[in-house]
Each structure stands twice: as C-alpha cells, then as structure tokens.
Amino acid sequence: MNIFRLAGDLAHVFAIIILLLKIWKTRSCAGISGKSQILFALVYLTRYLDLFTTYVSLYNSVMKVLFLASSGATVYLMYVKFRATYDRNHDSFRIEFLLVPCLLLSLLINHEFTVMEVLWTFSIYLESVAILPQLFMVSKTGEAESITSHYLFALGSYRALYLLNWVYRYIVESHYDLIAIFAGIVQTILYCDFFYLYITKVLKGKKLQLPA
C-alpha cells in the first residue's frame, strides 16, 4: 500500500458517501445518471468475484464489501425508493454501446483467458467509461448541482491518484499493469474538461454550467 493508492481509495469512498448522502438527504436523485450507477454496480460485481475465494487483507475485503453494498444501495434508491425523482428523459445514454465493446475488448486483450481474468478485465474497461452516461446527462441538462460536481471531482480524482500509484509501484516494485494503466488514463482523460470547469467555476462558488 502507498499514499497514492490510499488517497485514491479514500477519494473513492468519499465520492460514494457524497452521492448516497445527496440522494438520502434531498430524497431525490435529480441530475444523477442511474445508468452510470448500474455500470458501477456491474464493475464491482465482475471485479470482486474473488471476495470469497481470495483473501488479500482485511482492508481489501472491507472495501470490496463497501463498494458492492453502496453501489447496490445507490441503484436501489434510484430505481425503487426515489424512482419518482429519477430523470429518465435526460439519462438517455445507450449503455449497450459501452457494454458490448468492453466485453469484446476484454475477450481480445487480457492477461489470461480465464473466466475470472476476463471478467476482471471487462470490469477494468467498463469502469473507464462508466461515467459517460453521467457526463452526457450533465451536458444535456447543461448544469449540475454543486453536490453532484463534488461527487464527480472525488470520483475522477480516485483514478487519477491510482495513476500515481502505478508510477510509484513501477519505480519501487518494478511491476506494472498495462491494462489497468491504459484504462485508467482513458478514465481520467474523460474527466479533464469537468476538472477544468470544477476548478474554474465550482471552487469559485459558481454553479457548474456547461456551455450548451
């Protein structure tokens, strides 16, 4: 474990807590993409299949359970409890355009052609594009609540910090994982224009307005 990965995991947990609090406190999921949340739930389900077969550490197991439980709870809150506030019209990204390419790519490019490895690779590729429905929704509505932009900033920072973690591990442990690095770079790049808007607008107290 290194400071970059720990900071990344904490930013990830922080993002999930912000989102759950936003939905629970406002009893509304307006402005949140349910499709992205479904994709995140799928990412954790396909990545953490080894939860019961491989024990890495207490930290690792606790975080996996936390991510699985929180993503499930978020999907439940959005599609069941507060379904009346779910903005279906603006959440119109076709996620099959993400699922199919990620599945095909994970069958073609992976570390080992086994079920667990292909599913892990699928989850890595899917995670890199899972935020697209959310960013698409923000661009369609043209704005985002500040709490939603804090959520996106924390979520985008998590994988950016993981990139630093992989640089650290390459230097210190001389190991690297090209699949994770490639997907992580794509994932972080997708947030770049949001990061710019967040830093130039939201941090100055303005609302996040995307140029329509």
């Binding site: 491989t54 890495v56 490895e117 994770a180």
Partner: peptide
C-alpha cells in the same frame, strides 16, 4: 520490469 495484474488492488 515485470508486467502483471496487481491482485492486491481494488
């Protein structure tokens, strides 16, 4: 340097 999957990462 060795290319491998990091099994200890989330």
């Amino acid at each position: 340097a060795e290319e491998q999957r990091f099994k200890d990462e989330l």
